[in-house]
Simulated assay, not measured.
Amino acid sequence: MERIAHLQSVGGILSVLAKISRRPRYAFLVLQLVAEIADDQGHSGPFVRRGNTVVLLRDWLCSQLLPLSEQNVRRAALRARVAESLADRLTGDPQLDAITLDAAVEEHVRSAGRTNVSRAISDLVRAELVSRHYAGFATNHCNRGGGRNAVYVVPYAVRCLLGRAGQCSNQVTEMGLKAATPIRTDRSAVLQGELFGARTSSNGQP
């Protein structure tokens, strides 16, 4: 965490990301969203509950960032490319073809979104602005991450700079943020039953 020890402002975070990420502004948006739903220990995920719905954190991040891909010109160009790739599956019926194209475009956008979020998180981890571990059942799976889902942790000092630490006692000085331990409260654990329930409903990957 040496890199963040001398950060003094949000501008410092952007400066760090500009050196590490090809899309620093996008990575910063992801950081803000992760910090927004973090608990008092800075943990976000592996699932996000919204009302009666539980979704994987990465899928929630994708849904929050979808407006960035909804510009009319870009979406029209994407739709044209998808229509060309699906030419052999189109029936000539405008209504049926519209349903097919809408579903294909939506899937393409969400797939690209998941990839973009994963890259942004990797940039944030390299910048030491976020750490990452996995939660869930350990399963006999060829993929070491199989059956588990990512949890992202935003350091206390970073949450202070973002204004997301509810009880921030740190003071910004010429030397940057002094190290401090946040006041912590009990964190509700995700029940194991919810791990399987959300995984089944979201069909997401770690």
Rank of each mutant, 00 (worst) to 15 (best):
G163Y: 13
E174F: 12
L65N: 03
Q205M: 14
R58V: 13
R75D: 07
K19L: 15
V125R: 08
E70D: 06
A77Y: 00
S118H: 08
G145C: 03
I183L: 11
G176I: 04
V158M: 09
V30E: 05
R49Y: 07
S118C: 04
L191C: 14
G42E: 02
S122E: 14
A77P: 00
K19I: 13
E106K: 02
R148P: 06
I13L: 11
G146H: 02
E70N: 07
S111Q: 10
V16L: 15
R79S: 07
V48M: 04
V48R: 06
S122G: 13
Y152E: 10
S131M: 05
A198F: 14
A150L: 07
G145P: 00
L33K: 08
A150T: 07
A138R: 07
A83K: 02
V10L: 09
L101P: 01
G204K: 11
A38E: 02
R23D: 15
E194C: 12
D59Y: 07
S131E: 03
R81S: 05
S201N: 10
E107H: 09
A179Y: 13
A27N: 10
N52I: 13
L78I: 02
L86K: 00
L195P: 11
R159D: 03
R22F: 04
G176S: 12
A179N: 13
P24T: 08
I4E: 06
V48Q: 11
H108A: 03
L14H: 09
A189D: 12
T91H: 03
R148D: 02
E70Q: 09
G163Q: 12
E194W: 15
A120Q: 05
T53I: 14
A35R: 07
A112R: 05
R110Q: 05
R81W: 00
N140F: 08
S201M: 13
A35D: 05
R119M: 12
D186L: 12
L14T: 06
R187N: 08
E128N: 05
S201E: 14
N140G: 09
F137P: 03
A76M: 06
V16T: 14
Q95G: 01
L33M: 15
C168V: 06
L14M: 09
D93Q: 02
R199M: 15
C62L: 11
L17V: 11
R119H: 11
E194L: 15
I99R: 09
L195C: 15
L66A: 12
G204C: 08
R58F: 06
L7P: 08
G42N: 02
L195N: 12
L161Q: 07
A120E: 00
Q64F: 04
Y156G: 11
V109L: 08
S202R: 04
H6A: 08
L161N: 08
A18L: 12
E174H: 10
N149P: 03
N52P: 00
Q32G: 14
L68C: 04
N203M: 13
Q8Y: 04
P94N: 03
N140A: 06
S169A: 13
C142D: 09
E84H: 01
A77G: 00
R132P: 00
Q167G: 13
Y26H: 10
P46A: 10
F28Q: 04
R49Q: 10
R81I: 00
S85V: 00
A76E: 11
I121R: 11
